[in-house]
Amino acid sequence: MNNFKLLTFFILTISLFSCGSNSDKKSSDFSLKISEDKEEFQLGEEIQVSVLNPKNRKIDSVAFYFEGQKLQAENGNFRTAIILDNYKLGNQPIEAHVFTEGEKQEISKTIKLFNNTAPISYTYEIVNSYPHDPEAYTQGLEFYNDTLYESLGQYGKSKLRKTDLETGEIYNEIKLDDQYFGEGITILDGKIYQLTWREGEGIVYNLDDFEQTETFAYNESKEGWGFTNDGEKLYKSDGTEKIWILNPETLSEETFIQPAHHRGLSSKLNELEWVEGKIYANTYQKDGVAIINPENGAIEGLIDFRGLREKVTQHDKLDVLNGIAYNPNSKKLYVTGKNWDRIFEVNIIEK
């Protein structure tokens, strides 16, 4: 075979192979149109969703879905209306199943749903302060039966410890293997759950003796940041705009919320704490704590902790605010930071 024929054969072969490899990728004949041609909405708004049919194909019926719920459709006009109330915030897809000439085509379009009110602004007052290990790179902080538990991070230095709030005395402590970077902790049903950062798994311990009993995979998320629970379910942040909700039996990530205020989504939510039905979450490298509705992700309040870091001993290793602990018995709230030498009891005051 001469060079020209060989080149022609090669080109035809590549062309045929390429066509064959994409044969199963079929674009839809339909698309969705959202009223007002915008993508961002707030709770309480009503939007109109309709199917565009540029090829004028015969449509038998259309089924619309939003947040897993089937919507009432005006099949004569192949459209529906959605009142954006009682839905989760964040990036939410609207889906439509179009039935046409013996086949079903699925189409979708994502909207951003925000809260309809701005967060309430809070500041703080210091009630008391207590000693804290300045070598502790705090990643998780939680009270259980009036005793403080803490997770420390950094590779080769990660630990889990149990301490006395007033004196700083360490009652019990274990060091994690060097391949782990410790993150958030939470305590539920006699077990301590500790996240690791980029290792893709969490660790479960007995509460009494810190004996490791099992590990669990993250499934959907890629990192572990903050951890808390509501007495039944576990809530886990991962640095993205999502807070995952875990099944306490299987520890699988079953669903999530996306914390949002009235103008956008929030990410880099780090240490989490359950406080009287709300999730308190500090934003990594910021001096603020968000108060989040766990039902829909609405950020209902923001606590400004600026100035608190200046009230601890200043040194080279001093790092950011990170550590929220609420004692449900005394109804008191405590905050600290990475390598801070004090833990502060604070009152939250509306500005």
Rank of each mutant, 00 (worst) to 15 (best):
G231Q: 03
G297Y: 08
L302V: 15
N86W: 01
Q314H: 11
T147S: 13
F216W: 05
N270P: 08
I83L: 13
T186S: 10
N56H: 13
T123C: 06
L302T: 12
K278Y: 13
R57S: 11
S35H: 05
Y235G: 03
E150H: 06
D164H: 11
K25C: 01
L52D: 13
G44N: 06
I203D: 00
E74M: 06
L6K: 14
I203S: 00
E345I: 08
G200H: 04
E223C: 03
V127C: 04
V98P: 03
T255A: 08
I349Y: 02
R198P: 07
D189F: 06
L12C: 13
I348L: 12
A290P: 00
Q212F: 01
G301Y: 12
A217H: 05
T228H: 03
S158K: 04
N115W: 12
W274N: 09
K332H: 15
I303H: 05
K104Q: 13
S21M: 14
D319M: 06
E276Q: 14
N339V: 00
E310S: 15
L188I: 12
N322K: 10
Q258K: 11
P131M: 09
G156E: 11
H261C: 08
E36H: 11
E253R: 01
Y171L: 14
I187L: 05
K33L: 12
E223D: 14
D60F: 07
K338Q: 14
L207F: 05
R198N: 15
I192A: 02
I343Y: 05
P328A: 12
F4W: 09
E249P: 00
E95K: 01
K157N: 15
V204C: 02
Q154S: 13
N86F: 10
L302D: 06
H132K: 05
G337K: 02
T196G: 03
Q72G: 00
T240L: 05
E211I: 02
D37I: 00
R161C: 10
G90T: 14
P134D: 13
Q92K: 14
S35Y: 07
N339T: 12
I47W: 03
E95D: 10
Q194G: 04
T100R: 04
T228K: 01
I107L: 04
M1T: 15
I292Y: 05
S237M: 06
N219P: 00
Y87Q: 08
E39S: 13
R161Y: 10
T228M: 06
T163P: 02
I111T: 03
T123S: 15
G90N: 13
L176C: 11
E103W: 00
Y193R: 01
I120S: 09
N116S: 15
F216R: 01
S267Q: 14
Y180C: 03
N339E: 03
I185R: 01
A217L: 10
Y130H: 08
L84A: 04
A63G: 01
L333P: 01
D164F: 03
E39Y: 09
N2K: 07
F227C: 08
